[in-house]
């Protein structure tokens, strides 16, 4: 089976760039494109009377307020807005599981897997890179928190995946992917980075 062409297929470059030689002893920042994710947008209708806390997807509860994320090894559920969630998973068949749990009378389920560019930045300077373009207080963000914000004017979702080392998944609209990638890599040149 031929896999779909990802948004950064011809943009992302592997290798070392920027001031990486001055980072001797420190772990180098890694920038990569995260591929083959299922990204599902889940919205509960206003008329729906179901309590979202009674629903479990992949044994995960739906987070009920900002900026929470519930996660296991394969799936992350991001609070996106009231009654709205972004489900990101490496399980390709997750949409059928969601459809089983969330009926059409109460929920709108949209597969947006191919409409996002997903960049992962990983390393001790990851927060410093984000600080260059995001107006939110990156120091306050905790593991398994997310935020819808902007990076140099581009609308992005930031998902703090891990803090050892700091790892962020950054989701932007696919059509902004190339510009966003260049903004991120330009911001990372000061620290040096490895495209992986």
């Amino acid at each position: 089976m031929k896999l779909a062409v990802t948004s950064l297929e011809h943009i992302h470059k592997k290798g070392r760039f920027g001031n990486y030689q001055k980072q001797s002893g420190k772990k180098l920042l890694e920038i990569s494109e995260v591929k083959n994710l299922a990204i599902i947008h889940l919205v509960q209708y206003k008329k729906s009377k179901i309590q979202p806390n009674t629903i479990k997807l992949e044994n995960l509860e739906l987070p009920l307020d900002n900026p929470k994320v519930t996660a296991n090894k394969e799936t992350r559920i991001l609070w996106s807005a009231p009654r709205t969630w972004l489900i990101i998973s490496s399980k390709k068949n997750i949409i059928s599981n969601i459809k089983n749990k969330c009926d059409r009378e109460n929920f709108a389920i949209t597969d947006i897997s191919h409409s996002r560019a997903v960049i992962q930045i990983k390393g001790p300077q990851a927060k410093e890179v984000l600080k260059k373009g995001c107006p939110i207080n990156i120091n306050e963000i905790q593991v398994d928190n997310c935020a819808g914000t902007v990076f140099n004017g581009i609308t992005v979702v930031i998902d703090f995946v891990n803090n050892d080392p700091d790892t962020f998944n950054l989701l932007a609209l696919r059509s902004f992917g190339e510009t966003f990638y260049h903004h991120i890599t330009d911001s990372a040149l000061e620290f040096g980075y490895a495209g992986v």
Partner: peptide, 9 residues
């Protein structure tokens, strides 16, 4: 819903 944020959002 989200708390204190910058105007450019």
């Amino acid at each position: 819903h989200c708390g204190l944020r910058s105007q450019n959002e």
